[in-house]
C-alpha cells in the first residue's frame, strides 16, 4: 500500500507508452464503453465501481470513484450504502463457507 502515490493516478492513461500499446488502447476503449450511459445510468455505474474498488482495495480506484460519484451527484448515504453492499457480500462470502465447515465437522464428529 505504501507504494500508492495519488499523483500516479494521472499516469494511468500512459501505460501503453511503456509497452503493449495495442492492448492498452483496447483496454481503455473497452473501459470507456463500459462507463457510458446504458441500461444503467453513469451515476449507478460509478457507485458499483466505488463498491468494487473497496473489495479489491485499490486506493487509486477509491480515489477516482469517490470523486466521480460526487461529480455524478451521488450523496454520502448512497456512497456509504454502496460500500456496505460490498462489505455485506464479502462478509457473506466468508460466512457462507461456514456451511462447508459445518458439513465437514458433522462428518468428523460423533
Amino acid at each position: 500500500m505504501s507504494y500508492f502515490k495519488p499523483e500516479d493516478l494521472k499516469k494511468f492513461g500512459d501505460i501503453g507508452k511503456f509497452g503493449a500499446k495495442d492492448l492498452a488502447d483496447k483496454f481503455f476503449a473497452y473501459y470507456g464503453e463500459v462507463f457510458k450511459e446504458g441500461a444503467l445510468t453513469q451515476r449507478e455505474k460509478s457507485l458499483i465501481a466505488l463498491a468494487v474498488a473497496h473489495t479489491v482495495q485499490c486506493p487509486y480506484c477509491i480515489d477516482a470513484y469517490t470523486q466521480d460519484c460526487l461529480q455524478k451527484g451521488s450523496d454520502e448515504d448512497q456512497m456509504m450504502e454502496a460500500v456496505h453492499v460490498a462489505a455485506a457480500i464479502k462478509s457473506g462470502a466468508t460466512l457462507v463457507n461456514s456451511v462447508q465447515m459445518i458439513n465437514k465437522a458433522d462428518e468428523l464428529m460423533m
Partner: peptide, 20 residues
C-alpha cells in the same frame, strides 16, 4: 441551479436533472 458542494466539477446536467 446545482453547483457542487466542494472541490469537484458538476456532472452531466441532464443526468443530474433527472436525478433531482
Amino acid at each position: 441551479v446545482y453547483n457542487p458542494s466542494g472541490a469537484f466539477l458538476p456532472g452531466d446536467q441532464s443526468s443530474l436533472e433527472a436525478e433531482f
